[in-house]
Simulated scan of single mutants.
Amino acid sequence: MRNSRQTAATGSRRPRAEQRKGRAKARAAGRPSAADEHAAHRRQLLRQMLLIRRFEERCVELYSAATIRGFVHLYIGEEAVAVGVGQALDSGDAMVSTYREHGHALARGMPADAVMAEMYGKATGSSRGRGGSMHLFDLERRFYGGNAIVGGGLPLAAGLALASRMRGEERVTCCFFGDGAFAEGEFHETANLAALWGLPLLLVCENNLYAMGTALTREHAQTDLAMRAASYGMPAWAVDGMDVLAVEDSARRAVASIRSGNGPHFLEARTYRFRAHSMYDPDRYRSKEEIEQWKTRDPLTGLAGRLQAEGQLDDRALERLERDVAEEVDRAVRAAESAPEEPVENLMRFVTSAGEGVS
């Protein structure tokens, strides 16, 4: 198997002189060079991860002030997985998420103001304020939401993939879940049927080493989850989930193979959440030293450092990215604060399929 880090960084291996020559030729032709496009793409990956991080950091502030309530599960530290996988998916593909879903939703292209309004429980939220943090949904972007049940999204994803195959559509369904869900019956049933029926399904296990407060080694006798997934007869491999370029490369290879009719694929993204399981969690099951050690592999600073080292990002450009993201988050908060509550008379809407206004 090719080294995904090397594959993702192909452009950086070209001699600087050759890159400059390519840029000059492209400028003369009035178009961006391949090297310029490559650098712009990497900067966009960084921006997406920054948006997820700053959005969630603001959510921490708002939750602590009791401005937003309910359950909140943060994705901080895992941004490279959602952003990297998202690059491999087309607009017609489907995405199924977990209750730790803000990053997936934003990476899928859901507007930050719709996500923030949902956090506030406002009518302009992606689920009209009825779902909150764990139940984001966007039919237009084929984002089939979060799921409060561990592993609950897996059978739904298999159904979406089966529907695509029966309709003759060249669509892929991507399903995110954690290492805790790997121990649930839903995973094994879904993996078996997906392989048996050759479904166009990408299973992405975000292995952050803890199922709530239970360490991977206390839950699984065999901790190589990719190897276990391969036993169902599907291609499966692990990828460094703290490296967005490696994740993107692995996801693109998997999705291309699925589109070619090779059935389901499994990616084990080995990652880590820097925050507790939820805002209610005292986080006493792991040491501060362990957390700090993982923070040295922060996906944001890792990519920013690579871009700076390769001359694709300077301090001013990074400051512009941070400022642009901060303004987007500020706009989302202002929009959520000024958005209306759903009227009480709409309480029974969307409760049953026959309800008025259901589409």
Rank of each mutant, 00 (worst) to 15 (best):
L160P: 09
L321V: 00
E248P: 05
F71S: 06
E356I: 07
T271Y: 08
A339F: 05
A123V: 04
A332C: 02
P299I: 07
F176P: 06
Y120G: 00
E61C: 01
L45T: 07
M227K: 15
A304T: 01
R27S: 10
D314A: 11
T271C: 11
M134W: 05
R259S: 09
G168T: 00
A123K: 08
D324P: 08
L193Q: 00
R13I: 09
W237G: 00
E356A: 06
S127R: 15
M279Y: 00
G159V: 04
M242V: 03
G109C: 03
E56D: 09
Q308R: 13
V85W: 05
E345G: 04
G125D: 07
D113H: 15
K25E: 15
T173A: 02
M279A: 10
E328R: 13
A229C: 11
G311V: 15
L201C: 12
A246F: 06
G241T: 03
H220I: 12
I149W: 10
S231G: 12
R228N: 11
R252V: 09
Q48M: 12
A246M: 08
T124F: 14
E37C: 13
M234C: 11
R47S: 14
P299A: 10
A88M: 14
A336N: 03
M242W: 03
G357P: 01
R13M: 04
T124G: 10
G11D: 11
V244M: 05
E37G: 10
A238G: 03
F187P: 09
L89H: 04
R165A: 13
V351S: 10
Q222C: 00
V85K: 06
K21M: 12
A238Q: 00
F137C: 09
V83F: 08
A211R: 03
L225K: 01
R130C: 01
V344R: 07
R42G: 04
W294P: 06
R334L: 10
A39C: 00
E140V: 08
L313G: 06
G357Y: 01
L45R: 08
D90N: 14
L245G: 15
A183I: 07
R100F: 14
P32F: 09
G263Y: 04
E56M: 00
V85N: 00
P111K: 13
A40S: 15
R273T: 11
A163Q: 10
M116N: 07
S359G: 04
L51T: 12
Y120C: 00
R142I: 12
F177K: 05
A251Q: 00
W197F: 01
A230T: 00
F266N: 04
S231L: 07
L303Q: 02
A195W: 13
